[in-house]
Amino acid sequence: MTSTVSLTVNGKAVSAEVEPRTLLVQLLREILGLTGTHVGCDTSQCGACVVHVNGTSLKSCTMLAVQAEGADVTTIEGLADGDTLHPMQQAFHENHGLQCGFCTPGMIMSAIDLAKRNPDPSEKEIREWLEGNLCRCTGYHNIVKSIKAGAQAMNA
């Protein structure tokens, strides 16, 4: 049985028909076509699917779409302002914070949540924060650099 879920995604009111078992990430990717949010695992460990729901970062693969009723969701697609990248996106660009880019949307969404709580995180704090965001390419070094720069730019 399906039901209608209504929520705000990247500032736009949307409604969709979903099953109770539809995951939030499936709603975003398969129904709304927002494929910037990725799925990298089925064990809730990789963080490729991180989005913001009512301002906090969470794994959209581990929340039901019906649980997002009335929520305000932001995905990677909602960050840039027209052609101007969000400061955290810009920092990943400038610091070469990605290689294949698969983990990047989740990394950026997690990083923004960190920067909102902690305007000038140390390298150690960034590495601890990335516990739930796995990258198979970069070795994390430039991701950490990007996040440090992005947090400073966001809070400048």
């Binding site: 963080g47 991180v50 969470l58 794994k59 929340m63 949540d113 516990e131 739930g132």
Partner: peptide, 9 residues
């Protein structure tokens, strides 16, 4: 416990 996204939920 876990990671930030897990702790948020």
């Amino acid at each position: 416990i876990g990671d930030p996204a897990v702790r948020n939920r």
